[in-house]
Simulated assay, not measured.
Amino acid sequence: MKSDIRVCANWETAHDRPVYTLGDSCPDCDGPTANSAPAPFSPEDPYGEYRRRARRRRDSE
């Protein structure tokens, strides 16, 4: 399911805070927007263990 709420893709460099909109372009800077919904989570994710292991390895270095 796709979220209708979108966030300015350039908000970290162009704005002090995230700018949310329903359109395809930012109302403040006229830049592109991206889907603001997080990725879906599945407890049966077959690659989750490998991602967590890689993240732990990366964080310990």
Rank of each mutant, 00 (worst) to 15 (best):
K2M: 13
K2Y: 13
K2A: 13
K2I: 14
K2R: 15
K2F: 13
S3D: 14
S3L: 09
S3G: 13
S3C: 14
S3N: 14
S3E: 15
D4R: 11
D4Q: 15
D4T: 14
R6E: 11
R6Q: 09
R6L: 10
R6G: 01
R6T: 01
R6A: 06
V7K: 03
V7T: 09
C8I: 01
C8Q: 07
A9W: 07
A9N: 07
N10A: 07
W11K: 02
W11S: 09
E12K: 13
E12M: 12
E12R: 14
A14K: 00
A14R: 02
D16N: 10
D16K: 04
D16Y: 12
D16V: 05
R17T: 15
R17H: 08
P18W: 08
P18L: 07
Y20T: 03
Y20Q: 08
T21P: 08
L22T: 11
L22V: 12
L22W: 08
G23D: 05
D24E: 15
S25H: 14
S25W: 10
S25T: 13
P27C: 06
P27H: 03
P27K: 06
P27D: 07
P27R: 03
D28M: 10
D28R: 11
C29N: 03
D30C: 11
D30A: 15
G31P: 05
G31N: 15
P32S: 13
P32G: 15
T33G: 02
T33F: 03
T33L: 03
T33K: 06
A34P: 05
A34H: 13
A34L: 13
A34I: 06
N35T: 05
N35I: 09
N35A: 14
N35K: 04
S36R: 08
S36N: 01
P38M: 00
P38A: 05
A39S: 06
P40Q: 11
F41E: 13
F41D: 15
F41M: 14
S42I: 07
S42Q: 06
S42P: 04
P43F: 07
P43M: 12
P43H: 09
E44N: 10
E44S: 12
E44C: 02
E44V: 00
E44W: 11
E44I: 03
E44H: 08
D45G: 01
D45P: 03
P46N: 06
P46H: 10
P46W: 01
P46V: 10
Y47G: 00
G48F: 04
G48K: 02
G48A: 02
E49L: 15
E49I: 15
E49P: 12
Y50D: 09
Y50F: 05
Y50P: 01
R51W: 03
R51E: 10
R52M: 13
R52P: 00
R52I: 00
R53E: 13
R53W: 10
A54M: 02
R55I: 02
R55L: 04
R56Y: 09
R58D: 03
R58F: 07
R58N: 07
R58A: 04
D59P: 00
S60M: 05
S60N: 11
E61P: 08
E61L: 08
E61I: 10
